[in-house]
Amino acid sequence: MKKVVMYTLSTCPWCMRAKKFFREHDIPFEYTDYDKADDNTKKAIREDCLAHKSEMSFPFVKIDDDVVVGYNPDKYAKLLGL
């Protein structure tokens, strides 16, 4: 199964919808709320976003090596072969 890792904000409704999508499809995922993270984690998330040429717009969803920025259930489903 592909690995799903998300960067999210605790205040962002689209991040909540993304989490709900994966839960409803029984896809395990890890997530970190950027706004609640410690400084080192924040820095690492910023660098990861930059490495993917992305602004820090959330949700930032990694499905194996693919990245989807934003709530986009069609893309999530396609990448997961749902």
Binding site: L9, C12, P13, W14, D35, R46, C49, M56, S57, F58
Partner: peptide, 8 residues
């Protein structure tokens, strides 16, 4: 601030 974008 925007609830969906990260501050630096």
């Amino acid at each position: 601030f925007c609830p969906c974008q990260g501050l630096t």
